[in-house]
Amino acid sequence: MTTLPNTEQVWEALAQIPDPEIPVINVVEMGIVREVQIEGPKAIISMTPTFSGCPALHLIREQLEKTARSLGFAEVEVKTVLSPPWSTDWITPEAKERLRQYGIAPPKPAQEQGSLIALEAAPTRCPRCGSFDTSVKNTFGPTLCKAIYVCNNCKEPFESFKTV
């Protein structure tokens, strides 16, 4: 008879799943996996969407389920939770550093989300040369979570993670 892993081991296994759009960080570091519960032969995983229209959500959900099944759970339930809403503050500091090395400016600390008309205040640093002399080229980028900047110092365009 095989023994099923405990929650800690499930967390470890889920931390092997890369984010489908930013493979240098995994779905646990990203803050997408919120809770793991084990009830006998059943694993219940709670996840929260980053951006509600993110096309990677389907894939992440599938992979969470597949990974839990591969650990021996006969039944796996992947629940979606919306509250509290996902924040880039949940991305771990190590993962933020890896984002930077990957060429994506990491998100800044999230401000209070009270007003809808607030502009982004904190300066964005070029992930390549480190200069703060950067400008937004497009609030929207190749994926919902990123904006496009250009560095006025090294002249390189780069992606920046939106702060939410």
Partner: peptide, 8 residues
Amino acid sequence: QKIMREER
């Protein structure tokens, strides 16, 4: 709460 973060 979720949608507001995107809408701004």
